[in-house]
Computed example of a mutant assay.
Amino acid sequence: MIDEMLTDDEHRELPLLFGRVLDGEGGARAIGWVEAQDWQPSREGEVLWIHLLRTHPGVEGWLQERLAIPEPTAELLTSDATRPRAFREGQALVATLRGINFNPGAAPEDMLSIQVWSDGRRVVTLRRAPLQTPRLVCNELDGGIGPVDAGSLVTAITEHLIDRMSHAIVDMNAMIDEIEDETAGNDPVDTLDKIATIRRNCLALKRHMSPQHEALIAISSGAPGWFEDHDRREIAESIARLRRYLDDLDISKESALVLQDDMRARAAANTQRTQYVLAVVAGIFLPLTFITGLLGINVGDIPLAQAGSNGFWIVSGLCGAILVVEILLLRRLKWF
């Protein structure tokens, strides 16, 4: 069981979340914090991977003292500056990448960051909040089917980050399809709220994923020599997949926009139809209201005022005749 599953409070004493020594054949053995301090490869092909809690006190100083990482780089690796970026520093690769937050109660657009440093013999990854990608790669190593060297380890982490992004995009597309299938029976206000949420998620993911695309290009083009050609090809494939996902986000955003416009057009049409019916009804009763109001004023010489009960029926008949004439006229004019 990987101790990444533990809470941050349980790691106050040690910054190490887990450690593995890659055997160069797809497997790995666990390594503790004390052994990792002075680790040296016992045979060719071994690579040290330690996954650290970057908020632990002293991590920045340890990176500078033990790994000889320059102070600005160590500060970057432990800071809250999470915008994706990557660069080469001598024979070391430094990168900040982002992944989808699948922790309970989190929204897809709440991206989590992971910092990566490697000199080809050692790989250090750092995180603040729990991220599932390192666990997945570690499980592959424990199962003997993981990466074989530092370059493939960085590539595996990148691939898992991008692969999990696709899940959020697929979920949003499924939600759009569901809304399209149920628009007739749904509450328009509730549906518009769901569409607005989807559009916000698309914009947030696009804002976070676009810099990641640039960071992967920087890794592919500027990584040190230990990052081999097959690793660069894998990164190039990841870049292409990420580009497709960005295009899918644009399509999802446009689909949500079209659906939102359609819902608003339907709501506007319903409102106009209701207003039209009310206008026709008001037009029909306007002359009748005028006649009854005119005959109801309290002045002398009102027609039929002395006609008794016959006056009521005469006025009622007159109003009925006017109503029939109005209806026939409106139908002839095709107003309804």
Rank of each mutant, 00 (worst) to 15 (best):
G222W: 06
K334Y: 02
R12W: 08
E71P: 05
V124F: 04
R266Y: 14
A95H: 11
S238A: 14
E25H: 12
M175D: 15
T191L: 15
E214C: 00
I198N: 10
R331D: 11
E60C: 09
E254H: 14
V189F: 05
V280G: 07
R207T: 03
G105T: 11
T73D: 12
A268S: 15
Q132R: 13
L257G: 15
H208T: 02
N270P: 00
A95N: 08
P104H: 02
D190L: 09
I114F: 03
I235G: 08
E4W: 00
D190P: 02
F285G: 04
P41K: 02
G143R: 04
W33V: 03
A307S: 13
E228C: 06
T274K: 11
H56Q: 09
S113I: 03
V34Q: 14
I235Q: 07
R164V: 10
L286Y: 13
L161Y: 09
G90A: 03
E140Q: 15
F18N: 08
F18G: 02
I235Y: 07
S220V: 00
D163H: 12
G26Q: 07
R264P: 12
L216T: 05
V277N: 07
G99D: 08
H160C: 03
L249F: 11
V34W: 01
G283N: 05
V21I: 14
A204D: 12
F290L: 09
T197S: 09
I297M: 13
W117C: 02
D3N: 01
P130E: 10
Q260V: 00
